[in-house]
């Protein structure tokens, strides 16, 4: 193990390390802690320029209550959910199929198609912007959640295919051969043999895509406009315009907007990290 395990080092260094850890963490998360502190302060603290002192009163319930009851925030949150969840389902379903096709079968153009997916996934968004916006408008889906979902599904399929295909490649190929000898139809091999083995990959991708899509801002701005379809990342800017200079409310709003992926991460940590490392660093 590197660096030298702490248990094998001198007593002084052990104590220093134990003290250093929480200190480093607080420094690292300082900007975030500041926002959390802001979000439970009452408005009066800001008018009296008491920015960094202790809150004069705990106003957490009041501030967060305002965010949920007096603004469009719940609507944006709902939109985000209605965009994110179908995208996750769509992208995982499509890429389970493409990954299966590219991972199991040997045919001409296999590697070419695979690299097409990988390359497309690295492309800068801006080169897609104008054509995708036009396409969405031609389909009559501009400023709808469906329009956003369709694009996200298509784009995320690139990354998901990379992941799924590599995962399927690592499965024991004998299983498929054995099933073929038994005369099992190919689609049944997919459904009954491969899919059950892909559960960890599906879980990892689902968490990861959830976070990516929830946090998307660029496409939300390009393809949607109003509160009826915008997700929370785009909504937070109009929220902030509504409460300009009301830092306690803006902070509370930001925390609410950031929370769902954070919760997802803490609940599904193992899968999340497996997904991030692309399964390559095991």
């Amino acid at each position: 193990m590197f660096p030298t395990p702490i248990a094998k080092t001198s007593r002084t260094w052990q104590l220093t390390y134990q003290g250093l850890l929480p200190f480093a963490l607080i420094m690292w998360l300082l900007p975030l802690i500041a926002v959390a502190l802001f979000s439970i302060k009452p408005a009066v603290d800001f008018t009296q320029a008491n920015y960094w002192g202790l809150p004069s009163a705990f106003a957490g319930f009041e501030n967060y209550g305002k965010v949920f009851l007096e603004s469009q925030m719940p609507r944006y949150l709902l939109n985000s959910l209605l965009i994110t969840i179908p995208t996750v389902i769509g992208a995982v379903a499509l890429s389970a199929m493409t990954g299966f096709a590219l991972g199991i079968y040997r045919f001409r153009g296999n590697l070419l198609i695979f690299f097409l997916f990988v390359a497309g996934n690295f492309v800068p968004f801006q080169i897609l912007m104008v054509p995708v916006r036009d396409l969405t408008r031609d389909l009559g889906l501009y400023n709808t959640k469906t329009g956003l979902v369709l694009f996200h599904v298509a784009f995320q399929t690139g990354f998901c295919t990379l992941f799924m295909r590599n995962f399927i490649r690592a499965l024991p190929y004998e299983l498929i051969e054995a099933a073929r000898v038994e005369g099992v139809a190919e689609w049944r091999i997919f459904w009954y043999v491969v899919l059950p083995l892909m559960k960890p990959a599906i879980a990892a991708l689902a968490v990861l895509i959830f976070t990516f899509i929830w946090n998307d801002y660029f496409w939300a701005v390009v393809l949607t406009q109003g509160a009826e379809s915008q997700p929370v990342t785009a909504g937070i800017t109009s929220f902030n315009a509504q409460y300009r200079a009301a830092y306690h409310l803006m902070s509370a709003g930001s925390i609410v907007a950031a929370l769902p992926p954070v919760a997802m991460f803490f609940l599904m940590q193992k899968h999340f990290i497996a997904g991030l490392t692309l399964g390559a660093v095991k």
Binding site: L94, M97, A101, L102, I127, L128, P131, V153, E186
Partner: peptide, 28 residues
């Protein structure tokens, strides 16, 4: 079966990807 199945599985993903990612690059 063995020759056709991969293409059936690939078709929906490729179509989506072509229309939303590959073609737009050239259109731009």
């Amino acid at each position: 079966e063995i020759r056709v199945t991969p293409w059936l599985f690939l078709a929906p993903g490729i179509l989506f990807f072509l229309f939303y990612v590959i073609f737009p690059v050239f259109q731009s």
